[in-house]
Design a protein around this nucleic acid. Structure first.
Lengths: 218, 218
DNA sequence: GTCTATATATAGATAGAC
DNA sequence: GTCTATCTATATATAGAC
């Protein structure tokens, strides 16, 4: 009973469906058979559109990264651009947390990841940061965003509070916050990002543009 | 030809060997057969010491986290304690980067991870941080450390610089730094951690201990 | 371009002998 | 406590018919 006039496979449809499976059940759950079944075809059909499973994963990864907005770096305000980029980056990754370990294997040859790195680095250098410093700043923010998307603090705590109370007294309250996992994660990200940018602005004033910064007070 | 008097299996030996395999070849490379072969036994023998493969992975994860030093929180200087903890945490994770995605699945029931969270949270609250704030700070630093261990900025760049030059002009210089991957990663971590702590100290002065901080200047 | 059939490999885990 | 033998399952990928 071949399905008579169903939508045929396309690369985009395969990528979208693969993303959905990964989001719902994790990276190890994505097999070619599972993906094909989800699309209403058999496993081998996928190989008419992708040479290997890794090509599919790369396409998923590139699509996720492609959703990140780096347009802020077109302006002059590098700190605002970093903040907007970091939040956009975080939104893109937290929408698909299960793919993050794969993403972190490196930008590799994925166009979107390379374009993102290029935009951030270029924007910081244009703002006056020394090249080596620009690399460090981009990497530091990438670490923070990737780490925040990778695993929440709350995730993984078991249900019974009393189970912890005896051995880890300070966690009694902390664990209660696990009920509000998402708000904890977002609050921690907001706090960390603000602190990071605060420190970077201070260093910029000290090392990159001391004249401009010193003008008001001395 | 059974091995006559070889060292028999112990939980510790299994965990150490599993860690070595994961370090060398990645998390997916660790199968029960592979691990057993490395130990000079057959697969089923492992089940005399662990009920499941996941139990072995949990033991590996717990050992990695157990190497983190949180003794700094015994003192009063919370910022110095955070810095020491973050560096110790980073050293523990970067020594075994391939296990990080597994670690990030949550503290779960692993004693070392829970003890670490307890020490950090307790130290910050004792220093005067509000409980919710202490949770956010611990999480933010955990994100940063985990992200930095997960994937370096440099990792994954291909060898030929010219391959990037045409399409991503700003990356020509950045990619050269990939040759010094380790120093880039460490520099980015140092910069990010300093910036984070700088921002936190400023907030502490503003919100937790304004009297003490305001004394000199008003 | 999708299909059936299959090659090849590998996984985690158990039963029961020694 | 380790072994052989095996169960069950699942994987990626290819050949060749339609």
């Amino acid at each position: 009973m071949p399905r008579p006039r169903q939508p045929r496979l396309t690369r985009q449809l395969i990528v979208e469906t693969a993303t959905a499976v990964i989001d719902a059940e994790g990276l190890p759950a994505l097999s070619t058979r599972r993906l094909a079944a989800e699309l209403g075809v058999r496993g081998p059909s996928l190989y008419n559109h992708f040479a290997t499973k890794d090509e599919i994963l790369d396409a998923v990864a590139d699509t996720v990264t492609g959703a990140v907005d780096t347009s802020g770096f077109a302006s002059r305000d590098w700190a605002a651009a970093l903040r907007d980029w970091a939040w956009s980056y975080r939104r893109a990754l937290t929408a698909h947390p299960n793919i993050v370990p794969y993403l972190a294997q490196g930008p590799g040859r994925r166009p979107a990841a390379l374009a993102m790195a290029d935009a951030v680095y270029g924007g910081l250098v244009r703002a006056g940061w020394p090249p080596a410093r620009a690399t460090h700043i981009g990497a530091a923010l990438r670490y923070f965003v990737a780490g925040s998307a990778l695993g929440s603090f709350a995730r993984g705590f078991v249900e019974d509070p009393e189970l912890y109370a005896a051995h880890y007294p300070h966690l009694r309250q902390a664990h209660r916050l696990a009920e509000h996992q998402q708000s904890v994660d977002e609050g921690a990200f907001a706090l960390g990002l603000d602190a990071l940018l605060h420190g970077l602005v201070a260093e910029y004033a000290r090392t990159v543009d001391p004249v401009e910064s010193a003008r008001p007070s001395g």
